[in-house]
């Protein structure tokens, strides 16, 4: 009996050939336990060595292999071929980002935004080491833990139409990361981060489409983090305006 096969239609773009991108169709063996990334690796090894894409851990930890799979942003290591078989699977680079080549996107903008939100603990004054560690209760850890799980896979950016329309938008993962530090009891940098968050290109461009949360493979809930940031910024605003004599 002939081995079953499945077709992968892969987005190809080779800037040095000066051609517009196109889809190329590859017929590969269908294995029930293969994920889309296994299929792409098979193509790279057996059919077409020129195919470019990013991957590393193949177990949903590194966040490198995000792609549009049949139009949905997913980690290609977590998307099983059996979810699509016998239909062909269309694979494209993550939406909204410029394409460097084939399935490889340009992520400079994202890296820049991550740095902008100062994703580290900011202290007014560091406590000397001799005074011991900063302690947290389990409840204090719970406050931010969810937001610290982000693997920077950028699926949320590919899912976000607001980012697609307005590339200056700070975007889901960067705001969730800002909240990860804002909500950390050891941190004192919330006001500093508000300079970046509380702007039109910060949290206020978000219209709560909610697809970032749907796309997130590690359940960070960026949409929720942005909503909470809006509430906090609004409370700050009323405090500053209505209680100008109050302590900032």
């Amino acid at each position: 009996m002939a081995e079953p096969t499945i077709a992968l239609e892969i987005f190809r773009y080779h800037p040095e050939q000066g051609e517009a991108p196109s889809f190329r169709r590859y017929e590969i063996p269908y294995r029930e336990d293969w994920v889309v990334l296994d299929g792409i690796n098979y193509i790279k090894d057996q059919i077409d060595g020129t195919l470019a894409y990013r991957w590393s851990c193949r177990m949903g930890v590194c966040g490198s292999c995000g792609m549009m799979i049949n139009g949905t942003p997913r980690l290609s290591c977590a998307a099983f071929l059996r979810e699509y078989f016998p239909n062909p699977v269309r694979v494209e680079p993550l939406a909204h980002f410029p394409v460097e080549r084939d399935l490889v996107i340009v992520m400079d903008d994202f890296m820049h935004k991550l740095r902008e939100v100062k994703p580290w603990l900011i202290r007014g004054q560091e406590t000397p080491l001799s005074e011991g560690e900063y302690r947290q209760t389990p409840a204090e850890v719970d406050e931010y833990k969810q937001y610290s799980m982000c693997i920077n896979c950028m699926l949320c950016y590919a899912a976000c139409p607001v980012y697609g329309l307005e590339p200056r938008f700070l975007g889901p993962a960067a705001i969730a990361l800002a909240q990860r530090y804002n909500l950390d009891s050891r941190d004192e940098g919330r006001r500093e981060r508000q300079e970046v968050l509380n702007t039109e290109e910060g949290i206020w461009d978000c219209t709560l489409v909610g697809e970032c949360t749907t796309a997130c493979p590690v359940h960070v809930d960026p949409a929720g983090s942005i909503q909470r940031a809006k509430v906090t910024a609004t409370v700050d605003w009323y405090k500053d305006v209505l209680l100008p004599w109050g302590k900032r």
Partner: peptide
Amino acid sequence: MRHSSEPIWWSLFAA
């Protein structure tokens, strides 16, 4: 702190 006017509109929107 720079004041964006968005919080006013957003709070009215939410209410």
